[in-house]
Design a binder for these strands. Sequence first.
DNA 1: TGTTAAATCACCCGAAAGGATGAGCTTAAA
DNA 2: TTTAAGCTCATCCTTTCGGGTGATTTAACA
Lengths: 142, 142
Amino acid sequence: MKKLHKLNRIYWIYGGVMGLLMIILQVIQYKTMVREFNLDFYGASIGILFLIFGIWLGSSIYRRKSTDKYDGDKLGLSNRELEVLELLAQGLSNQEIADKLFVSLNTAKTHISNIYSKLNVKRRTQAIQKARDMALIDSPKE
Amino acid sequence: MKKLHKLNRIYWIYGGVMGLLMIILQVIQYKTMVREFNLDFYGASIGILFLIFGIWLGSSIYRRKSTDKYDGDKLGLSNRELEVLELLAQGLSNQEIADKLFVSLNTAKTHISNIYSKLNVKRRTQAIQKARDMALIDSPKE
DNA sequence: TGTTAAATCACCCGAAAGGATGAGCTTAAA
DNA sequence: TTTAAGCTCATCCTTTCGGGTGATTTAACA
């Protein structure tokens, strides 16, 4: 639900820019049609415009990775799981996490597995990343 | 010296792609000239081509921003090791890193092992943390 | 009272990661 | 030309991770 919300906004922006570009192109096309037509100039203009737009778009796409924040939403993670996630992000091994929480290795593993499925990731490194992006844990730079 | 090496490669790639695009454009131009000329198709083609190229270029540029930073202390990490470290911090597995760098799994593991000893850590999660702390890699919040 | 979610633990298995060591190749430097 | 560093790849071995399944206990809840 929230994801769709966010994505929709992005699509609207992109769509809007696309539409604007199309209009610009139409204007250019019209102008160059009524005057002496210069194909090279026309092609170069379109190329440059789309190139600039593409660069901006590419940057945006890449940059968007960490901009998405999930305020308050903890994705159904329980308290214990958040606790484990914190230790996970500190670079501790499963055994070390188990020791810190005074539970067995198996229990720690169970929690971690549940975290993975809730975060929809496959490795602990990805879990750490996602947790950081979603501000589920303390991030060093904020 | 080594940096120039790498940058040169990038420039060559960019240059090559640029040149190829120009050739493609010339061909399209020629074909559309001799037949019935379709301006919309011409414009759309150029637009799409440059858009794709721009997106790719934009991503590359943005991604590359921090790779050439921090000439300071890298703890004796070689260029290749920094490259591996970057991918490591992206949450990739050893196999995925190997695939991205077009080397064998064993090579990737060797690099990673060397990184561990140079960073004085034992696990990849710790390596990521230390790399982030020392600004050896991209930190999401800066 | 029955149900549900959370937390705990166990066992098994395969995949991934990590350590140790050796070795071939290339390039830059002494 | 010898040396050193960097990159590459390999093999063997151990540990850790991760997936799957099932079970118990407790607390909250309808």
